[in-house]
Design a protein around this nucleic acid. Structure first.
Length: 485
RNA sequence: GCAGUUGUAGCUCAGUUGGUUAGAGCGCCGGAUUGUGGCUCCGGAGGUCGGUGGUUCAAAUCCACCCAACUGUACCA
């Protein structure tokens, strides 16, 4: 049987882990970035931008395996066979930039940047393979006062975005303190490296699993919902108790890290950033690899309802810390640096939840309908549009098939346009145009039941002299300008 | 990677113990109505039933393998 020959039809679908962004989202993001930028500028940071691609070795990743070249990052080979990758964060490219232009820089070098980063890994709810980060860094500042400034700037940023004090907290810890704890439970030395990592990862999951879950992970292991088992760090009962004691704050150590934390706490106090804004928190772990000193994390504390209707805390929207070794990779000489990163997309979701993004909604354009389709009329309609535009009003001529007038109003209705302009032969002869208030018309029409009444009512429509087009449209728009509809 | 669940129209899904031409709602297009958004009515387009192989007179349905998505978990520079 010869099958009917079919044309190849590609399935229209997004690559997994990527999203299309549309109108209101883009506007809201722009607005949000503007607010963040204002704070950073006020703190004396300057913008800088690096490209999305870097040579793979510059990102701190070893050359890709030939069989799995894209593990974790998106990589490709250049014309000259060098491996390049899409950046997976904004810190590694900054380190490269600093190392490359070191002799021209005036240290301390204070910069910020926003941009997309890419991770080639399994996406999940709220986790994408392309997402936006907004970073600020100070390079060439060795003291923890630079770290303290980062924490305060993060707090200010949260508030500039409209997040109330108490709805967020900046949690601060120090890698050196964590190292001390590991030493105290007998995990010092190379032979325990793997176990140390497991312990740190277990601590990092306090948010997710609570004290009980973390205890299981520190000990024998934990069973997840699907029944899969995660092997634990294998600490004995005493070890588990001591780690738990430490992360809950009941046990303290005296070491360098703790002294740095004390200095930072003193700065916060002097600047009147209390516990409700910035909090020393021994369970804060973050970035397990390159951080060398203070680490910090911005966390949102208010509850949100997730897709399953469960109430959960929103959690982390950004973090950072000190990375004194990152520039050294390129230069051999140590260059102290500290910075933090805000997850813009995640923060957007949070602000939506708080209802902080609805206010500045833009009104849809005025639509000038096309009644007569001769060349002269088309010019006339377009001229009306230009008059409106010149007066600063968003406007457009209907660009679809003008054959059916009903379609034009349907289009305007679905776009949520406030006003339609109508001029056919009759109006033209009288030197008038019809201005239809679509919002009001919608309300009036709710009580109309018969088709005939519907078409003949011409609800919320007024006829005005052509010369008054702009001023009359403005009158109608003024009723809706502040985001009502 | 590991584990669980699920794959039928653009979307949400139904499809009986295997049985004729695979259905519905929504959406889309056209018409009633080429000058008025909604409602209503009529008509239409749209399907590799995730893929391949097998069992059978006969497979969306049963079997095997593969693929993909979702969820959890692990990893995450």
């Amino acid at each position: 049987m010869a099958k009917k020959q079919k044309k190849f039809r590609p399935k229209a679908r997004l690559p997994r882990g990527f999203v299309d962004r549309i109108g209101d989202d883009i506007r809201a993001t722009d607005e949000m970035i503007g607010k963040i930028r204002e704070v950073y500028e006020r703190y004396g940071f300057d913008p800088i931008e690096t490209p999305m691609f870097e040579y793979t070795d510059a990102l701190g990743k070893f050359l890709p395996d030939s069989d799995r070249p894209n593990e974790g990052v998106f990589s490709l080979t250049d014309d000259d066979d060098q491996w390049m990758s899409l950046r997976y964060d904004l810190t590694a490219p900054l380190a490269r930039h600093v190392a490359e232009s070191y002799q021209h820089l005036n240290l301390p070098y204070r910069t910020y940047r926003a941009g997309y980063v890419f991770r080639n890994e399994k996406p999940g709810p709220g986790r994408f393979r392309q997402f936006m980060q907004f970073d600020a860094d100070t390079v060439g500042a060795p003291g923890v006062q630079a770290d303290a400034e980062m924490c305060m700037m993060m707090a200010d940023t949260m508030e500039a975005l409209g997040i109330r004090r108490g709805d967020y907290v900046i949690r601060v810890n120090n890698r050196k303190v964590l190292d001390g704890v590991l030493e105290a439970i007998g995990l010092a030395g190379d032979s325990h490296a793997a176990q140390r990592l497991t312990v740190l990862r277990a601590i990092d999951k306090l948010d997710k699993f609570g004290i009980d879950g973390v205890s299981e992970l520190l000990g024998k292991g934990r069973m997840d919902e699907s029944g899969d088992f995660t092997k634990g760090a294998g600490l004995d009962t005493d070890g588990v108790a001591r780690v738990i004691g430490y992360i809950s704050g009941s046990e303290k150590l005296a070491n360098d890290g703790q002294r740095e934390l004390d200095t930072m706490a003193a700065i916060f106090k002097a600047c009147e950033y209390g516990d409700e804004r910035i909090k020393i928190d021994p369970s804060c772990v973050r970035g397990l690899e390159y951080y060398t000193g203070p680490v910090f994390e911005a966390e949102l504390l208010f509850d949100v309802t997730n897709e399953k209707g469960q109430t959960v805390q929103f959690g982390s929207v950004g973090g950072g810390g000190r990375y004194d070794g990152l520039v050294q990779r390129f230069m051999g000489q140590p260059v102290p640096a500290t910075g933090f990163s805000i997850g813009v997309s995640r923060l957007m979701t949070a602000l939506k939840n708080l209802g902080k993004l609805e206010s500045g909604r833009l009104l849809a354009p005025v639509v000038v309908c096309v009644m007569d389709r001769d060349v002269e009329s088309l010019g006339r309609y377009q001229n009306m549009v230009q008059q409106l535009r010149n007066a600063g009003i968003r406007a457009e001529m209907f660009q679809g098939n003008p054959k059916n007038f009903g379609k034009q109003l349907q289009y305007a209705d679905r776009r949520n346009c406030p006003v339609a302009i109508i001029q056919g032969a009759d109006e033209r002869q009288a030197g008038e145009v019809q201005i239809k208030d679509l919002f009001e018309g919608k309300q009036i029409s709710e009580n109309i039941t018969s088709r005939q009444e519907w078409t003949e009512t011409r609800a919320a429509q007024i006829s005005v002299p052509e010369a008054d087009l702009v001023s009359e449209v403005k009158k109608v728009l003024s009723r809706y300008e502040n985001g009502e509809s």
